[in-house]
């Protein structure tokens, strides 16, 4: 790169200091919000500063982080994966169905079944050129139905004492193993996005579809891989939740979680139009959303009121981001 500096159009009226501060706050808004809410709870919420509470928080956040990371990739390509909640249910149903072959086998089959849904979804999007919103809406309903059909739908307990009990309860150095796994997966995906051709191709597809095509990038294969990965993550998330409650519960697991995942992605700084991917932001936002719920329950705030407060918090986080976008 040559060293000439490009003079940028700086027609903003704000003083450099103020604009810099806003820019900074916008860039790190989700992290700031997470820390602020965490500190608030440490001070104001009885019983928050305990291993049990924090472990619970992480146990609950782990599956959300996983599906939100998959969702980040889908949204980064300008798409969306609405099937994740239902795929979690399918995974849970499959666990119950194949428990007879051993717990590990059941987990592998459940994740594979989930991934297969992703292959189907990805094929429709990449090759049949169907809008991901459409395929997602279809699968959202169909896969939930499939989950209820294969399992006989009802909740069935997983016998305690085995792998599932371990997944649902084990901690390493005080941190739930599922959370460590989710964070490791998020790290791996962040690496993929930053360092590999796969990550670039995903960004290109989201940033400018036609240009990506003309640059000869394998857009279709990339999309297929992304929706498969997203579904596989949802499959793992389904196993995590089943393990946590010690039961397969296809009628209830994952309901509306696709919305939570989408919210985490957007709050985390990945725009819905694609072309930018922020895995770290997504992880922070997933934790933030989980922390909001924890706060409301622990403060025993009325449900209806809690929903309004939550909406306000989310809009505030998004507003800070908007400031950043303008400042660029």
């Amino acid at each position: 790169m040559t060293t000439q500096t490009q003079t940028r159009g700086t027609g903003r009226k704000t003083t450099p200091g103020a604009s810099h501060l806003l820019n900074w706050a916008g860039k790190y808004s989700v992290y700031l919000a997470l820390v602020a809410l965490f500190v608030f709870n440490l001070v104001a919420t009885d019983g928050f500063a305990s291993t049990f509470t924090l472990q619970n928080l992480l146990f609950s956040a782990a599956p959300i982080i996983l599906i939100a990371v998959g969702q980040t990739l889908a949204i980064g390509t300008g798409g969306i994966d609405l099937s994740v909640g239902s795929v979690m249910a399918l995974s849970s149903a499959t666990v119950a169905l194949y428990l007879g072959y051993g717990e590990v086998a059941a987990i592998i089959i459940a994740v594979a079944a989930a991934a297969l849904i992703g292959v189907f979804n990805g094929s429709l999007i990449a090759f049949a050129r169907i809008n991901p919103l459409i395929t997602g809406l279809g699968l959202l309903v169909a896969v939930r139905g499939l989950a209820q059909a294969v399992s006989g739908g009802s909740r069935s307990s997983i016998p305690p004492g085995g792998v599932f009990t371990w997944i649902g309860n084990a901690s390493f150095l005080g941190i739930p193993v599922v959370a460590l796994f989710a964070l490791a997966a998020a790290g791996a995906v962040a690496l993929l996005v930053r360092r590999t051709t796969f990550g670039r191709y995903a960004l290109f597809a989201g940033s400018n579809r036609e240009a990506a095509f003309l640059a000869g990038t394998p857009r279709n294969i990339t999309l297929l891989a992304i929706y498969t990965l997203s579904a596989a993550f949802a499959g793992i998330a389904g196993v995590m939740v089943s393990a946590r409650i010690g039961a397969s519960d296809p009628s209830f697991i994952g309901i509306n979680l696709e919305l939570t995942a989408i919210a985490a992605v957007v709050i985390g700084g990945t725009p819905l139009v694609g072309g930018r991917i922020s895995i770290l932001g997504t992880v922070a936002a997933a934790l933030f959303l989980q922390l909001i719920d924890t706060t409301f329950v622990m403060q025993d705030i009325n449900f209806a009121f809690a929903q309004v407060l939550k909406a306000i918090l989310i809009i505030a986080a998004l507003y800070l981001q908007r400031t950043r976008k303008d400042a660029r």
Binding site: R195, T196, T197, L203, F204, E210, A211, T217, G275, R276
Partner: peptide
């Protein structure tokens, strides 16, 4: 604008968009 640049991405990403395959090993650029 519509068929050339990747607007949000850097000069580097834009310039190397078509050559990534040739300068990566096991997918790592």
């Amino acid at each position: 604008r519509n068929e050339g640049i990747f607007p949000g991405l850097s000069v580097k990403e834009n310039m190397t968009a078509a050559i990534l395959k040739n300068i990566s090993k096991f997918g790592f650029i």
